[in-house]
């Protein structure tokens, strides 16, 4: 399997504090890779560095072999690297269909078109509707985003990312704040994504992580502690110690 996303000695310093320190990751094409670690381990910082939301203090990011360290966020999205946010970042006043259509339009390169109305770009609307159907959101397509329950808003967070047709999808705690019964459905949806989409997941719920991930990287204090298949990670005494003062068996 070829590498699709790679970091080399990626570091981010805030004043005297290293939020990421010398992180070298290698994520294979089609991977189901999870990133775990205690609070403050720098998981979200790493996602921010990967996507260009933050600029690294040192180190590099490679996407499909190209150095993208200096590219802006939207340029990386155009190259197939797309993320979701830990805290919803949605278009509250738009309908669900409008907001997903917006994302589809941007991917199709229609964002500068100003003459024909959105409604005339039927291919974009149809694709957005198709995506909503896959995510079982079609029944609320014309409802304003802000009017939906949190669990469904969380699905829109993912829908916006999927509309960008990611090759690498970075999910930052997709089930955060979602009731347990709903988070199962959410993860089933994620699990059904085709293998062409490489997934890097941050998640707190160990149950979900161990069910979903095929490889796990453990971050502690901004640095990579270890990386392996779930069975090995689960037995690793260092991981148990630093990460799970609680327990992996919860």
């Amino acid at each position: 399997m070829s590498t699709v996303l790679e970091t080399r000695n990626l570091s981010k310093r805030f004043g005297g504090f290293f939020a990421s320190s010398n992180v070298s990751l290698d994520i294979k094409q089609g991977a189901r890779h999870a990133l775990i670690g205690p609070n403050g381990a720098g998981k979200t910082t790493l996602i921010n560095l990967l996507t260009g939301f933050l600029e690294p203090t040192s180190g590099e990011v490679f996407l499909k072999g190209d150095n993208v360290t200096r590219l802006s966020q939207h340029q990386r999205v155009k190259r197939g690297l797309v993320r979701t946010f830990q805290i919803n970042r949605l278009f509250a006043e738009m309908t669900v269909l409008e907001s997903v259509t917006l994302s589809v339009c941007e991917r199709m390169g229609l964002g500068w078109k100003w003459w024909r109305p959105v409604g005339a770009h039927t291919a974009a609307i149809d694709e957005a509707a198709e995506l909503l159907s896959t995510l079982r959101l079609l029944d609320v397509a014309h409802a304003p985003t802000r009017s939906l329950a949190y669990g469904r808003q969380r699905m829109i967070e993912i829908a916006l990312a999927l509309a960008a047709k990611p090759e690498v999808l970075l999910l930052d705690e997709p089930a955060a704040g979602v009731p347990t019964d709903e988070s199962r459905g959410l993860f089933e949806t994620i699990a059904r994504l085709p293998r062409e989409v490489t997934i890097l997941l941050i998640e707190h719920d160990m149950d979900l992580v161990f069910r979903f991930a095929e490889r796990i990287s453990v971050l502690v204090g901004g640095a990579l502690l270890t990386e392996d298949v779930p069975e090995v990670i689960a037995r690793d005494p260092r991981v148990r110690e630093v990460y799970l003062g609680t327990s992996l068996d919860d």
Binding site: S72, W114, P117, G119, L160, A164
Partner: peptide, 29 residues
């Protein structure tokens, strides 16, 4: 009126409603 109903106009509304999400869906804000 044409402009605000177009994909360009939609992207402007997107910027107003959530500035930080727009780059994450590939829009050059």
């Amino acid at each position: 009126r044409r402009l605000v109903h177009s994909p360009f106009g939609l992207s402007l509304r997107g910027i107003r409603q959530n500035l930080t999400r727009m780059p994450a869906i590939g829009a050059p804000v």
